[in-house]
Simulated scan of single mutants.
Amino acid sequence: MVALAAVVLAVRTAGAAVEALAEAWPVLLLIAVPAGAAVAWRLRQAVAGRRRDRARLAALRLTLAELDAMDDRDFEHALRDLLVRDGWPARRVGGGGDQAADVIGDHAVRGRIVVQAKHTRVAGKVGSSVMYAVKGTAGPAHGADHAVVVTNGSFTRDAMAWGDRYGVHWVDREKLRRWAEDGSALHELLGLPARTRGARFGRAA
C-alpha cells in the first residue's frame, strides 16, 4: 500500500509539473528568446572583433619615428604585434626577472622565438653583453629555437660578430625599418629555418 501510494503521488506530481509547464511556456519563451538573441549577438561581436584585430595586424606598419617615440614597454608591445602579424602567436613577458626575454612567440613550423628588446636613443649602441645574456638564457630558461635582439639603434661591431658566430640574431635600425615599416616578415628577413628535432639553444627542463 505504501509503495502504491508513492507511485500515485509521483504520478500526480509529474502531472502537476506538466500542467504548470504547459501554462508557463509562453512566459518561458519570452524569457528564452531575448536571452538567446543576446548570447548570439555577443558571439557575433566577439567573432567580428577577432576579425578586425586580425585585419589590423595583417596591415600593421610602424615607422621608425613612431618606434623611436615609444617607451620601453610600448616598444615591446609593438614587437609582439609585429610577430603576430608575421604568423607567430606571441606574448610580451618583459619585466623584472624576465631572464633576457621580452617577447616570446611560437610558430607551428619554425618553433619558438625569444626576442630581447633594446629601445634606445637613435645613436645608442647595444654591446656584446646583451648577446651573452640572451645566448645564456634563450634555451635553458625559455626553450628557444631562435633568439633575436632588436633595437631601434645599432650594435657594436663585436656584438654583431659575436651574434653571427653563436647564432644570436640581431635586428638593427635598418633591419627594423624593413620589418616594421616595409612589412617584411622577420623570419624571411633573418632567414630563420624551420624547427628541427632539437632546439638550437636546447630545451627548458
Rank of each mutant, 00 (worst) to 15 (best):
A199L: 12
P34S: 08
R173S: 03
P26N: 01
G143N: 15
G124P: 08
A194I: 10
D164Q: 06
V114E: 08
G111Q: 04
M160E: 13
A65I: 04
P26Q: 00
V27Y: 08
R54Y: 03
R61W: 13
D182W: 10
G124R: 05
V109D: 05
G87M: 02
I104D: 09
V2F: 13
R12A: 15
V8C: 10
A194N: 14
R197S: 11
F75H: 10
L57R: 09
A58T: 01
A133S: 09
R178K: 09
V168W: 13
H119D: 08
R61K: 06
W179Q: 04
D158A: 13
A101S: 00
R92K: 10
V114M: 05
V39A: 15
A78M: 06
K175P: 01
A55P: 00
P26K: 00
A37G: 07
L29F: 15
L83Y: 06
S154A: 10
V122Y: 00
G202A: 07
R42Y: 12
D106S: 02
W88M: 11
R61V: 09
D86W: 02
D164M: 04
V126L: 01
E23F: 15
V33W: 01
D102Q: 05
R50E: 12
S128M: 12
H142P: 01
A138H: 05
V114F: 02
R173N: 01
G105R: 01
Y166K: 09
G124N: 11
D158H: 14
D164R: 10
A48G: 00
M160K: 11
D98Q: 02
R42S: 04
L189S: 08
V109K: 03
R200G: 13
E23R: 15
A90W: 08
V122N: 12
D158V: 08
L9W: 02
D164I: 12
R92D: 10
H107Y: 11
H107N: 05
R56M: 04
L30E: 15
R110C: 12
D86E: 02
A17P: 01
M70W: 01
S129M: 07
P26R: 01
I31C: 00
A199D: 04
A199K: 05
A123H: 08
A133Q: 11
G153K: 02
K125D: 06
H77L: 15
A20K: 15
D74L: 07
G136I: 14
A161E: 13
V122F: 03
G191E: 04
D86G: 00
P193C: 12
A199W: 09
